[in-house]
């Protein structure tokens, strides 16, 4: 039995189970937050964030995220080039970690959310337990994409020796930060309860 079938709704802020008889707007009796049986406009908000993230994803990978400057040479590197560089220099475990955090995770998140959105819009029942697990996984891994940005912050600050050697941030980093925030917002806007609503026989 779903809470919505009984005209109940759990407040997403304070956790109170409150009455919400169908249409109309109601406030939580305890904390006075507006109650929503489902996140309002969940699918369109999630689509908006996902599509924007998809667009920003292109410059994030095409443009270099940082430039390593030494006396004799200047090497700009993109995310992928950074991973390859780590792997070549016998730092395979770290290369794998960075690859997962900054390439595999964003791609998987974007593809995963789009899959969930398509499924919900198609409206046919699916294996809800599996889809929920996928949603949880997307939600869990999202923040780990911040890894590369923290690394850039550390490297840029520590390696600044003027003309000798310096590491500078590039425009790709800004775009990548955009992708991370947008995918976080997309995952937050998606309401996993919609997956389970597909199981219910439609009247």
């Amino acid at each position: 039995m779903r809470a919505i079938d009984r005209g109940l709704c759990r407040c997403h802020v304070c956790g109170k189970l409150a009455r919400h008889p169908g249409d109309g707007s109601y406030l939580c009796p305890r904390c006075h937050t507006p109650l929503h049986p489902r996140i309002p406009y969940s699918v369109s908000r999630a689509w908006a964030f996902t599509l924007t993230a998809l667009i920003v994803f292109v410059p994030a990978n095409v443009f270099p995220i940082m430039t390593v400057r030494k006396i004799d040479n200047t090497i700009p590197s993109t995310i992928l080039a950074g991973v390859i560089d780590l792997a070549r220099n016998d730092m395979l475990p770290i290369a794998i970690v960075v690859f997962i955090a900054s390439i595999a995770v964003p791609v998987f998140k974007l593809v995963g959310i789009m899959f969930l959105l398509f499924t919900v819009q198609r409206g046919r029942p699916i294996n809800a337990a599996q889809a929920t697990n996928m949603y949880r996984f997307i939600d869990l891994i999202g923040r780990w994409s911040m890894l590369d940005l923290f690394v850039i912050s550390i490297l840029v600050t520590l390696v600044s020796f003027g003309q000798f050697a310096s590491i500078e941030a590039n425009i790709g980093a800004s775009a990548f930060a955009g992708v991370v925030v947008l995918t976080l917002l997309a995952a937050e806007s998606f309401d996993p309860r919609l997956i389970w609503d597909l199981q219910e026989p439609t009247p």
Partner: peptide, 23 residues
């Protein structure tokens, strides 16, 4: 709460150690 990412930062420190230790 969802914007606290200190655990990710911890991993970033480890990655930086590996990247910088030879330089």
């Amino acid at each position: 709460a969802s914007w606290v990412m200190l655990d990710v930062y911890l991993l970033a420190v480890i990655v930086s150690v590996v990247k910088l230790k030879d330089m």
